[in-house]
């Protein structure tokens, strides 16, 4: 088995509404895959199903050959399946450093310690200093998250993801809402992600998709309608139709 993550005929319905239908694809180590699709195609639902927030209605998920379909969020994270959020979800009252340190300590199983002081752990400290440095936000370490700018929070979100030593990293619109002058930093950080992990990125921004992805998955109306190279995606008639439809809707006067 060389597949890191395998989805087989995964479906998710909310009542009668089928948001994801029969989705199958594979991720291998080192993959850089973009998941695109018009609004309401079911992208975020799919990420929730993969990360464990929503159980699939049918189908199976395998991580490194193990069935993870029934595992909860924490168990998947511990196996290396990590996601970031579309809207940043951070520990708002903690400092940037503590946010990353907490992820590191959780990964190392240190959060079962009751009487050692969290800040007296040199190896944890070295690690978060390194991570924040890599993402260019080392100078923000002592600042409380609620006081950070949005773009900085997105970088911190990435830092937490990386602190968990992911094998598969799901990035849910990592550049959404980031001001223009800060977006390049996010791109840079994504391009410098460790080469051996598989990254699945949901993104609207096609420039970013072309820059990042070696392979593109297109989701429309809950189904996977295309899988191929970024060059092929724009030429595909199904994809054009799906997108054309949504653009036509969007442009229709209210």
């Amino acid at each position: 088995m060389t597949d890191l993550l395998a989805l087989d005929k995964v479906s998710r319905a909310f009542g009668g509404l089928r948001v994801n239908e029969n989705i199958s694809f594979r991720l291998a180590p080192g993959d850089r895959v973009a998941l695109i699709g018009p609004n309401g195609a079911g992208k975020t639902t799919l990420v929730n199903v993969i990360s464990g927030g929503l159980p699939p209605t049918s189908g199976t998920l395998h991580l490194e050959g193990d069935d993870i379909t029934r595992l909860g969020i924490p168990a998947r994270v511990r196996r290396g399946l990590v996601r970031t959020f579309q809207v940043t979800r951070l520990f708002a009252s903690l400092t940037a450093a503590d946010n990353v340190a907490l992820a590191i300590m959780q990964r190392k199983g240190l959060t079962r310690r009751f009487f050692s002081v969290a800040t007296d752990m040199p190896d944890v400290r070295t690690e978060w200093e390194h991570l924040l440095g890599t993402l260019g936000i080392a100078h923000l370490a002592r600042i409380t998250v609620s006081q950070l700018a949005y773009g900085q929070q997105r970088l911190l979100e990435l830092a937490i993801g990386l602190a968990l030593n992911p094998k598969v990293l799901l990035l849910d619109e990592p550049a959404a809402g980031v001001p223009h002058d800060e977006a390049p930093k996010i791109l840079e950080a994504i391009e410098r992600l460790p080469a051996d992990i598989a990254v699945l990125m949901i993104e609207h921004d096609m420039d970013l998709v072309f820059r990042f992805a070696k392979r593109v998955l297109v989701l429309a109306n809950g189904r996977l309608i295309f899988e191929g190279t970024p060059q092929a995606v724009t030429a595909d008639p199904d994809v054009r139709r799906a997108y054309l439809g949504s653009y036509a809707d969007a442009r229709r006067p209210a």
């Binding site: 520990f91 903690l94 959060t111 050692s116 969290a118 968990l164």
Partner: peptide, 20 residues
């Protein structure tokens, strides 16, 4: 302690805590 820090994290956002 790390445990205490985790509790403060849970207070801030328990889904995020699960996600670590």
């Amino acid at each position: 302690s790390p445990f205490g820090l985790l509790c403060r994290g849970i207070r801030d956002d328990d889904l995020r805590a699960q996600m670590i």
